[in-house]
């Protein structure tokens, strides 16, 4: 259900840490209903971008809007509209799944907390774990709780930073299915940082490639595969882009 409304838009977005330019005049548009895969090598600026878009960080210059709200001037409105799952978050291990979710739901202003938790866990097909402590959970189970806390307040846009990091193949497959269902059934726009090109090919509807803080490519996945007909996989296309960018 892609539309022509950009729900994420950045204009000349730049950020530097001391003298290092992590982001360099990034102009990016992500449209409503897309599953956007943001690709790039380590240190390319993907996490910096997601930190700015989720209002956790302010850019050095340029602007970013999410769901029509400025990420600096209207950060609280942006946070109402988004869900976020950072990389390697471990939650409160001594609390149960219900207690963890209840805390994040209350922070998000959810009214009927129990009902929302039941609905979300039901959607994720995650039963019988409410009263178990998160310290007993596997990485895959934690990621599902991570997704649950991110969508409990019914946001419009979901940000995922390396969501498959550290997951086994079955965990990756389960997460992929969840992401696709969230997009199709809950109509969420999904912005996903990732290294795994195979996952992008199976999950995303559009991709962007970031190299040293610059956006070197952006298009739908279908167009990308058409544009590089001689390449057999997304990995090869990605390597081609990186090589061109280096030149």
């Amino acid at each position: 259900m892609n539309t022509n409304n950009p729900v994420i838009e950045t204009k000349s977005l730049s950020h530097s840490y001391n003298s290092h330019n992590a982001l360099d005049n990034l102009d990016l548009e992500v449209y409503e209903g897309e599953i956007f895969g943001f690709l790039g090598h380590n240190g390319a600026g993907k996490t910096t971008t997601i930190n700015i878009l989720t209002t956790l960080m302010q850019p050095s210059s340029g602007t970013a809007t999410v769901a029509g709200y400025d990420t600096v001037k209207q950060s609280m409105q942006v946070r109402q509209q988004i869900g976020y799952l950072p990389e390697n978050v471990t939650f409160y291990n001594n609390l149960t799944a219900f207690e963890n979710l209840s805390f994040f739901a209350r922070l998000s202003g959810v009214h009927d907390v129990r009902k929302h938790i039941e609905e979300v866990l039901d959607f994720l097909d995650f039963h019988g774990i409410e009263n178990k402590k998160l310290g007993e959970f596997s990485k895959g189970m934690r990621q599902r709780i991570g997704i649950a806390q991110a969508i409990i307040h019914e946001p419009k846009i979901l940000f995922l930073d390396e969501p498959t990091s550290g997951l086994d193949p079955l965990g990756i497959k389960n997460l992929r299915e969840i992401i696709i269902r969230l997009n199709k059934e809950k109509h969420l726009t999904i912005f996903m940082n990732t290294h795994l090109l195979s996952e992008v090919a199976k999950t995303c509807t559009s991709i962007g490639v970031l190299n040293h803080g610059k956006l070197i490519y952006k298009d739908t996945l279908d167009n990308t595969l058409r544009r590089f007909p001689s390449e057999v996989s997304l990995e090869e296309i990605y390597v081609q882009m990186e090589i061109k960018s280096a030149w």
Binding site: T55, L56, R79, I82, Y84, P86, T90, F91, Y92, Q149
Partner: peptide, 9 residues
């Protein structure tokens, strides 16, 4: 968790 908390309003 601090990052999760401040992704909420």
């Amino acid at each position: 968790v601090i990052q999760l908390i401040f992704s909420k309003p």
